[in-house]
């Protein structure tokens, strides 16, 4: 599986894809994109790395265990939902704050963004975990 072309391509594509996935996630609330696509593309970039260099290298690229990512993602999504509960509203009611950044304009931040981040992490963790589990089994053969 280790082809030089793939390895070279992966070296440049990996950061680009990773950046693209974050971009998709960030613009998701206003333009096409979002946590699902972002997470999936991030997972795809890691799997490209795994194909090119092998699963152990890909594991090193990812600073934490994919299974922990799932947990962090689920917790973030649940935390985003709990903000509404703490305000005495139904679970998952959104809350927004407007930040005035000098020289940058206005920035709206809300719990849906945190929720979407949770989705991003969970989808990334799930996909990578599944694929790497199967891939490692393949390599051990």
């Amino acid at each position: 599986m280790k082809s030089l072309i793939l390895q070279t391509a992966a070296r440049y594509l990996l950061p680009l894809l990773a950046l693209y996935s974050v971009l998709l996630f960030l613009q998701g609330h206003h333009d096409p994109g979002g946590g699902f696509v972002g997470g999936l593309i991030a997972a795809a970039s890691l799997m490209l790395c795994a194909l090119a260099y092998g699963v152990p290298v890909a594991r090193d690229v990812l600073p934490i265990q994919p299974r922990n990512l799932i947990g962090i993602g689920l917790l973030s999504a649940a935390a985003a939902g709990s903000v509404g509960t703490l305000q005495g509203k139904p679970f998952l009611t959104s809350a927004w704050v407007k930040l005035q950044l000098p020289g940058f304009g206005e920035l709206e931040l809300g719990t849906p963004l945190l929720f979407d981040a949770g989705v991003f992490l969970a989808v990334l963790g799930v996909t990578v975990s599944i694929l790497m589990t199967l891939a490692e089994e393949e390599e051990e053969e």
């Binding site: 206003h30 333009d31 096409p32 979002g34 849906p112 929720f115």
Partner: peptide
């Protein structure tokens, strides 16, 4: 919901 991508707003809000 302060979002312009309606599909995404439905999903996360």
């Amino acid at each position: 919901a302060h979002g312009r991508n309606i599909v995404n707003v439905i999903l996360v809000d």
